[in-house]
Design a protein around this nucleic acid. Sequence first.
DNA 1: TTGACAAACTAATGAGATTAGGATAAAACC
DNA 2: GGTTTTATCCTAATCTCATTAGTTTGTCAA
Lengths: 198, 198
Amino acid sequence: MAPRPGVTRERVIDLAVETIDSEGLQALSLASLAKRLGVRTPSLYNHIGGLDDLRGALRLRGLEVLERRLQRVTVGRARRDALLALAREYRAFATEHPGLYPLTLSAGGQGGRGARDAEAADEAAARLVGVVLSVLSGYELEGDAALHATRALRSSLHGFVSLEAAGAFGLPLDLDLSFDHLVELHHAALVQGAYAAG
Amino acid sequence: MAPRPGVTRERVIDLAVETIDSEGLQALSLASLAKRLGVRTPSLYNHIGGLDDLRGALRLRGLEVLERRLQRVTVGRARRDALLALAREYRAFATEHPGLYPLTLSAGGQGGRGARDAEAADEAAARLVGVVLSVLSGYELEGDAALHATRALRSSLHGFVSLEAAGAFGLPLDLDLSFDHLVELHHAALVQGAYAAG
DNA sequence: TTGACAAACTAATGAGATTAGGATAAAACC
DNA sequence: GGTTTTATCCTAATCTCATTAGTTTGTCAA
């Protein structure tokens, strides 16, 4: 299918993921990717539409992996069990992919080559929210309450892992414990119907 | 004090704040700042140590303003009153400063010209955490519980405003309501001593 | 008026993204 | 097997930007 079996879009993306997770988001450059792939920079344009397109592809990749992981750890579980599993897996993903994780929240791309990716990423993001909603459905919320609860949970999870990654939790206090406390807080609120009025 | 009253460090920083809040973080460049200041790019180096130094200065600026604002709205209030005021002001700051806000969480700088700024920023960040701790002190937590609660609250606040800024809350459901729900969740947990075991 | 100094300038370098156009190897086709 | 097609890769060039070096020039103070 492809003449001269060398670089492929997948290989570029794979290498980009490795790069940003080990060296940080700011270390992502077409020049360094090309060098590590043994190719000149402009050659990358045969596989990706440019840096923005690559970022869009990375966003899609991250969302797909995260959604799959959350899906996997929550099947067969419900309520507190499912909630804790989902939360811990979310944090694990962010910890293992410190570069990829923040890209999953970047804004969708514009037009051009990455339009398909942007659309697919939006769908993956919707499925991801769906997984969270499924977990919360075990608490039998009704109407808008489930949506408010989903937003609250996503906020707490994203906030915690972001602050953790930024090194914003300075004090020498167990982070795992803090995280579990945070999740328990949500569980308690869900059990006690804190969202009923909403 | 200064020959040729033209550009000053403060003016550069002020203009940088305007730029990132109106055009986004990625729009920050020495070239555009210099042009808007009516000066050649290298001249900026008489006032700032470079782009990294400028980012460090912006981080400091953001932390100082945020801390001052949170301080102001919580004096004379306690418990639920103080908590809600602090949370809303936090969100207001993030909304009014979509470019400056994320910089407040960036990692501290290294050496060189920005070392003083980095140190000052760390102190401002510590004061900011102090404000949150003060608000939570009204709930009479003891020991590590207060720290866990602070982390939980910061996580939720940062997460919400980040997701909001990223446009990650897609559904047409009132955001103000979701936010207040989230804050009430923390209030309820604090009142009910959810952190007692910690 | 003059000397000192900060602030501004020009010139140059280097990294990086991106585009245009030509060369080529591999696959597809006859 | 030879030919055509096509995707991949290349070189060359342009553009933007950050940064450094070295020089000029206002402005203030003595």
